[in-house]
Design a protein around this nucleic acid. Structure first.
Length: 626
RNA sequence: GGGGCUGUAGCUCAGCUGGUUAGAGCGCCGCACUGUCACUGCGGAGGCCGAGGGUUCGAGUCCCUUCAGUCCCGCCA
């Protein structure tokens, strides 16, 4: 056990407890707050371990020390020596772990003074935080606060926990290059100019994807890395330009093997950090099922309120909007909200606005009270239809039903009309489901609803470019039931383009890609990879990538695959997001020591920055603006 | 690339339909105070109202541009 004793101190200030009473200590740290009562001065001394009260009192503290204590300001770094003693009865501070003791100081040394801090470190309970730009500009001060220190402590513990666990499952931690080759697919790369090769650039890795597959080819069997990844894309509260992944890859595995490793790792984390025992295995949910039941590939499974398709029933009603679906082929889907009839009229009106904001034409609601149904379309249901509607929707007294009309994705594969592909009424109903879940307190922070979502589509359609792209990445193994169809569609002939490509997409081919979802957050994704060169060629052909181009882009991986590839697959968990959720922080910035702003600027050190012309010349770079 | 919100004292904020000397709390400085722990009391200093332009007799307030932060859509294989 480390007691933090050094040349400057005998103990950590924040670690003092009643058991230390009676002993002499030397402490060092920052002045958190000073309370000068005239004859008597109290100072809260802070170090990484917490805070302890120092008492400067006449009689014990020498007069010159007491006088100098009056001159000290917040955030000065001092060292003191004195006696730890039990606080007088009635003067304990139950708020502080050190609150039973105090240190009566008899010697004081100032290591360094501090200017008045531009942002406060010691805050009052309900003070607002300073503006984000100031917090980032003075990050070293913000990091002194308990909340951020706690976030980084949990981050450290989580990292060690993951390393310990994966090591126990036979994984080797292997690091991979930061200077790598640009990949045209996917996110924008950060580029690094080469000085020795004029006009050539490295790219910083978006992920160690290709390297970890090469490690499998090399026979390393089980690899992991807590990997830094960099993507030059626009940011969000939960997206930073550089971020950290728990990246792992295994050989000779199928989905279930990968899921087992992933969920045992998460179970270890939740146990270590939250003391919560996750229930294993996580539920598995197909992508199609997730879309049909929740309208999203990352459903919040802490509560029900599943989508119900009542098109056939409701289009019988004497209601123009419903009847119109017989012509348009749109669907009427909705959710039953238990106890939702208690919502105010104002809240009910708000629902349509939420649906519109999410791209739907609106939302319709009906509630069931003691006197039957009421709401916008209640009158359109005659007694018989109303009865069948309540039975079908499971609508009990006090419940609310909210419906959205439109084209819903997630119908059976093969039923993907073009409108359904591009539509997205499910987005609106998902927004309503999440809104109502929050409103009714169903998204409890102490509930831990994990799931693996499987069988993601193999391809996505890019409408602007009129082409098919890999939904996950081009090395993702197609779903076994869809391989035959893929080979059939891509056998011979030129790569499909335009309508031929769209027809291929419309097949709804599935892949062996999967996500881990937690309380409505996507926290990991991965896949079983292709290890069969013929199948890989078929996928490239489907993607419209000629062999020569595939060779140019991914040559080193394809070449490696000619020399014996094991079946393999893996996952990557978003580590920053995990930590953010584990500590309940509102932003990724609170669990990263030195984060960037949403404009990808580093306010503390001032990056990015301009570079002198002669330095640019050395890198063979000429800029066109700024 | 698009949209919303924010920018007034070191910090957090108020400042009405445009009106004379721009306020509060915290912090800071000074004085008093022997059991405080967001100490308390009294006094004081502190403002280019993000920047630039415009409208007006007059702009913190209205308009345009721009910068910064933030949230969202697009984007993020």
């Amino acid at each position: 056990m480390n007691d933090f004793a050094t040349t400057y101190r005998t103990a950590q200030a924040g670690a003092l407890r009643a058991s230390a009473a009676g002993s002499r200590v030397r402490l060092a740290g920052w002045i958190h707050r000073r309370r000068d009562l005239g004859g008597l001065v109290f100072i809260d001394l802070r170090d990484r371990g917490g805070r302890v009260q120092l008492a400067f009192e006449p009689g014990t503290t020498p007069p010159d020390v007491l006088a100098r204590a009056r001159e000290l300001g917040p955030e000065w770094v001092i060292g003191v020596a004195g006696l730890v003693r039990q606080r007088p009865a009635g003067n304990l501070n139950p708020e502080l772990p050190t609150g039973e003791v105090e240190v009566v100081v008899d010697a004081l040394q100032v290591f360094s003074a501090s200017d008045t801090p531009p942002i406060p470190v010691a805050r009052g309970g309900d003070d607002e935080l300073p503006a984000e730009d100031l917090r980032l500009r003075y990050r070293y001060l913000d990091l002194r606060r308990d909340e951020l220190q706690h976030g980084l402590h949990v981050r450290h513990r989580a990292m060690q926990c993951v390393r310990r666990h994966l090591t126990s499952e036979g994984f080797w931690e292997i690091d991979t290059p930061m200077l790598t080759r640009r990949t045209p697919e996917g996110a924008r790369d950060y580029l690094v100019p080469s000085r020795v090769h004029p006009g050539e650039f490295y790219a910083l890795p978006q992920s160690p994807q290709l390297y970890k597959q090469l490690l499998m080819v090399s026979g390393y069997d089980r690899y992991f890395q807590i990997a830094r990844c960099l993507r030059d894309e626009d940011l969000r509260a939960d997206r930073q330009p550089e971020f950290t992944q728990i990246d792992a890859e295994l050989s000779f595995v199928a989905e279930e093997d990968v899921f087992g490793v992933g969920e045992r790792t998460m179970a270890a984390l939740w146990r270590e950090i939250l003391g919560v025992e996750l229930s294993l295995p996580f539920p598995r949910l197909s992508y199609a099922e997730a879309l049909a039941r929740y309208g999203t590939d990352k459903p919040d499974l802490r509560f029900g309120m599943e989508f119900q398709d009542l098109t056939a029933l409701l289009c019988e009603a004497d209601f123009r909007l419903f009847a119109a679906t017989r012509e348009s082929g749109e669907q009427i889907r909705g959710i039953t909200v238990p106890g939702g009839a208690a919502l105010s009229r104002r809240e009910l009106d708000e629902l349509a606005a939420i649906a519109r904001a999410a791209g739907a034409a609106g939302a319709l609601w009906v509630k069931r009270g003691p006197d039957g149904l009421s709401g916008p379309f209640a009158k359109a249901l005659d007694e018989g239809l109303a009865g069948r509607f309540c039975a079908a929707a499971g609508l009990a007294d006090g419940d609310l039903f909210v419906a959205v009309i439109g084209h819903f994705r997630g119908a059976a594969a093969g039923d993907l009309s073009r409108a359904a592909v591009l539509g997205g009424a499910e987005v609106a109903l998902d927004a309503l489901r999440r809104h109502l879940g929050t409103r009714l307190g169903l998204r409890r922070p102490d509930a831990h609803a994990w799931a693996w979502v499987t069988g993601f589509p193999l391809f996505e359609w890019e409408p602007e470019a009129e082409r098919v792209v890999a939904a996950h990445h081009p090395f993702t193994m197609p779903h076994p039931d869809d391989v035959a169809r893929l080979l059939e569609l891509t056998s011979g002939g030129p790569p499909p383009a335009g309508t031929a490509a769209f027809a291929l997409y419309r097949e709804g081919l599935r892949s062996r890609a999967y996500d881990a979802v937690y309380n409505g957050n996507e926290l990991a994704s991965g896949s079983i990879r292709i290890h069969d060169p013929a199948l890989q060629r078929a996928v490239f052909r489907a993607l419209g990538i000629p062999e020569s181009e595939a060779e140019r882009r991914f040559g080193f991986l394809l070449e490696a695959f000619r020399f014996g590839v094991p079946p393999h697959g893996g996952f990557a968990f978003g580590f920053d997001r995990l930590v953010m959720l584990l500590v309940g922080a509102p932003s990724l910035r609170d669990v990263i020591a030195f984060p960037k702003t949403t404009a990808a600027r580093a306010l503390f050190e001032g990056a990015p920055s301009t570079v002198a012309d002669d330095e640019l010349r050395e890198l063979h770079i000429r800029t066109t603006s700024a």
